[in-house]
Write a protein that binds this DNA or RNA. Structure first.
Ligand SMILES: [Mn+2]
Ligand SMILES: [Mn+2]
Ligand SMILES: [Mn+2]
Ligand SMILES: [Mn+2]
Lengths: 219, 219
DNA sequence: AAAATATTTTAGATTAGCCTAAATTATATT
DNA sequence: AATATAATTTAGGCTAATCTAAAATATTTT
């Protein structure tokens, strides 16, 4: 079955709301896609007809097995393209997403299989997210929020959950980016703030709120 | 100015009908795009509004300077992607076109400039067609129909004009493909047939009709 | 120069995807 | 349990891109 780009974007968004495991609501999806609830309802009916999700009006919806398979296919393409842009075309980690958002919709199994091979069958994308294989299987990513990271262990920043300008401002200030290698030196129990060190730079303190949004992979 | 995929396909098709040099007719364009003349008229009005072509009803149309620039940008993207698919992903020359037809519409100047660099700034695509540079300039391609090729000069097959099954049957029989290196040994004036030789294989004779549809680049 | 034919345009539909505003249904509060 | 509020759906419109059939215009033939 071939889907339009719009249908693919909806399916992928439902998956990102964990719609393979739980009921998702119309408003949640509208919010994530920056669209209107009425538009979501329209699309839900269409996707239900195509048997990609189970949906009863006013009751929420979740992906069918087929829908989940589709979602993983789209995510596979997205993350492979992100890897390509990062590895081969020297894109920064914050430049890859928007272009991959378009590239993911190009349908050609030859293309995506050859791309996978060309990249050496990568298991993770530049953000540290796992890349599904052709069957939809993926490795569990070993990254975790910085506030759960063991003390005195080197780790590499793999993902930033909140990408608001305010957050990026803090990150920029502390010179923290995807790929930055750091170490948690100490945890303050009073406010759960953390003292961390980047390479040879002086130690800095960040709040729990910031730490929760920085994901790292221990090395 | 940003165009839709559909607008881009129309602009490119007008260019391929030499619409930068001459007046093109509605039916010609409809034929090339496998669409209806009425649809072409609709689009012509839209593209005229965007000043991409000059068009007066019943009088035909041609590209404006701006339209030509757009066309060359699209062709640049198309041919760079074809080169990528061929060089890096081991696509055959007859597999690249359809995928490039989609990839060409992805808009990101960073993407296309980096791709160009990654490929080593190629001047010709896998079909031997020249790739416009960022300013729209391209080298004149040196390929010509086999029946006009000088005698006893090695040349490489760069393009096959007629790709009907009948033609492909003949080519397959003689083991002629894009990239095949050959030499014209003799021209028979009686029926304009040619004797050619591929590498160390025994010489073969092909008709004028076949020769006209095989394009080569002398080396 | 008429008539016949071919080309092109217009008129009017259709579909996908989106929207706003109003109506409906579910959930929370009193 | 009734009322208020929140979530969701429906109704009705809009635009882009396509189509068919009919009308208009241009071109060719007699
Ligand atoms: Mn997308
Ligand atoms: Mn990613
Ligand atoms: Mn195209
Ligand atoms: Mn080509």
């Amino acid at each position: 079955m071939k889907l339009t780009s719009s249908e693919e974007n909806y399916i992928k968004a439902v998956y990102h709301l964990r719609g393979d495991q739980r009921l998702v609501s119309t408003n949640e999806l509208a919010e994530l896609l920056a669209t209107r609830p009425a538009s979501v309802t329209d699309m839900l009916k269409k996707l239900r007809t195509k048997k990609l999700l189970q949906y009863e009006r006013y009751q929420g919806f979740k992906l069918s097995a087929e829908g989940k398979k589709m979602a993983l296919g789209i995510i596979r393409r997205h993350r492979l393209w992100e890897s390509f842009l990062s590895e081969k075309l020297r894109f920064n980690w914050d430049q890859v997403h928007d272009v991959a958002e378009q590239l993911e919709h190009i349908r050609s199994s030859l293309l995506i299989d050859r791309l996978d091979e060309f990249l050496g069958f990568p298991r993770f994308d530049p953000h540290g997210d796992p890349i599904p294989d052709p069957q939809g299987k993926m490795q569990v990513s070993r990254h975790l929020p910085l506030d759960e990271c063991p003390l005195l262990t080197f780790a590499i920043v793999s993902h930033v959950t909140n990408q608001s300008n305010q957050m990026l401002e803090i990150l920029g200030h502390h010179r923290i980016a995807i790929g930055t290698k750091l170490e948690v030196r100490r945890k303050f129990h009073y406010d759960h703030s953390l003292e961390i060190r980047i390479r040879n730079q002086p130690a800095i303190v960040i709040s729990e709120q910031v730490a929760r949004n920085i994901h790292v992979k221990p090395v």
